[in-house]
């Protein structure tokens, strides 16, 4: 999940077989849009305009329709982020169990507010809405992984471990 320097002018998927496999699962091409966007983001770190061009060609629909979709979903990023995206759930059960403290901790320790990325590109901090893990609040998602029932000490250790 890294992106250094200027955005690439063109994008192609690393493994065309994966793309074909995704397409083959659906009765129509456009249904493959979200899976292809996920795949592209896992390779590029975000949805660049080059990604949009490539995918719009694959699923055979206008780039604007792809962007319409991308802009709707919070997990799809149109800008590059840090290596570790710290997503702190802020909805009620997590909030009642100290989520705000976790956000403040990152801000104090790394000097970034929600929505910001550290200068060394290590962390991006985000406040997100309910992650569906209220029984193990507070919960923080870092990239793909959930970290549940976090105490401040555990969270501190977690941040340390993310290089």
């Amino acid at each position: 999940m890294s992106n250094n320097g200027a955005p690439k002018q063109s994008f192609s998927f690393a493994d065309p077989d994966k793309v074909q496999n995704i397409l083959s699962q659906y009765p129509d091409k456009q249904s493959a849009l979200l899976p292809l966007l996920h795949l592209a983001q896992s390779e590029e770190g975000y949805i660049s305009s080059a990604v949009i061009d490539t995918i719009s060609e694959i699923v055979d629909c206008h780039q604007a329709l792809v962007m319409d979709c991308v802009s709707f979903y919070t997990m799809l990023y149109t800008k590059p982020h840090g290596r570790h995206i710290i997503q702190v759930c802020q909805t009620l059960s997590c909030s009642l169990n100290g989520a705000d403290g976790l956000v403040d901790h990152v801000t104090a320790k790394c000097g970034i507010k929600p929505g910001e990325t550290t200068d060394d590109n290590r962390f991006t901090l985000m406040k997100v809405e309910c992650l569906g893990s209220c029984g193990t609040a507070p919960v923080v998602q870092v990239n793909n992984d959930y970290h549940e029932s976090l105490t401040l000490e555990e969270f501190e250790k977690l941040l340390e471990s993310l290089k």
Partner: peptide, 23 residues
Amino acid sequence: HRGAGAYICGEETGLIESLEGKR
């Protein structure tokens, strides 16, 4: 099929639209 971060896609017709590759 993975969603991409939208509560409303739990509503069945929002979900169907999303599955079709739309908002």
